[in-house]
């Protein structure tokens, strides 16, 4: 996939656990795992906004475009 999700990196930088982020954002840990693993087909702006707010970062810190 051309879009890479760097959520793991940001979580490590903020020293936050996936479970805590899922709780703050209001999504299930299963869905967060799908997002982290890159299996997600799309992400809602509201979810992205909540993640950015929780991790105090920009969307570009989480999502990255890599040419195939």
């Amino acid at each position: 996939m051309a879009i890479i999700v760097n959520l793991d990196v940001m979580l490590a930088k903020r020293k936050m656990k996936s479970k805590d982020l899922a709780e703050i954002v209001g999504i299930t840990t299963a869905n967060l795992s799908i997002l982290k693993s890159g299996k997600a087909k799309a992400i809602r702006f509201s979810t992205l906004e909540a993640i950015c707010k929780a991790l105090d970062c920009q969307p570009s810190d989480i999502l990255e475009y890599v040419e195939n």
């Binding site: 869905n31 967060l32 799908i34 997002l35 997600a40 087909k41 799309a42 992400i43 809602r44």
Partner: peptide, 8 residues
């Protein structure tokens, strides 16, 4: 359906 389910 799959796309909808995999939209987080």
């Amino acid at each position: 359906k799959q796309e909808n389910e995999l939209t987080i």
